[in-house]
Amino acid sequence: MKRILAVTLPLLASMALVLLLGASLWSIAGSQTPVNLPELLAGKMNESGVNHPVTAVLLNFRSYDTLLEIAVLVIAGITGISMARTASLEDPELRTSDSLLYALQRWFIPLMLLLAGYLLWAGADRPGGAFQAGAVLAGCGVLMRLGGIPLGFLRPGLLLRVGLGLGFAVFLLVAVLSAMAGEAFLAYPPGMTKPLIITIETVLTFSIAMVLLALFVSAPVNDAGAPGEDDS
């Protein structure tokens, strides 16, 4: 009886959620939005410094969101490496010596690096951008790591921490420098918009890849130096 109840109740709750959501979606779809944001956006596109509206929203109109989003990524990275123990990075069990993987790597890694670069460059006027490029770059790192290339910079040390924070730090510096120049926080000085956005995107790509890779590397755990049960 209890088992049945334990399945039925969540089932009923989720079905109610879907029905209510569906009803409200139907109701919303019947009306026009009173504010037309796409039109406003199209009117301001020439001031944004880039040609693709999504990139313009991400790195200019709502850049504060993006700044905080990168902060969230850095937090995840920090917590990840705070859990990691150095030895696990060198765990021989994690290395494969598969000749097929080696052969594939030789082909894939240059291609993936190229793709990451393309995605970054494409962000200005078509779908693409820092996060996509960073994700591909991180994928590249994951492949290399699985293939047994040690990637020494991923050891929890100064280099890793600089890499984690670099993109965020550059973004933040740009934000505050414009505030010092008398504009609002995060406002780009006129004429500098495009180069600044490109700089930010490039360092962000690098840092995003670092964070994702660091999280991948710190997930496996082993017995070496497990933290003790210390209490406050």
Binding site: L41, L58, R62, E69, A219
Partner: peptide, 30 residues
Amino acid sequence: HGQGPDAVPQALVLTGIVVSIAATALAIVL
């Protein structure tokens, strides 16, 4: 709905995806 693609929610979703990737990765580590 009504008027063609809207870039703002697409940007919001990109931000949302990054945040949820960060949270998911952190959860996996934990």
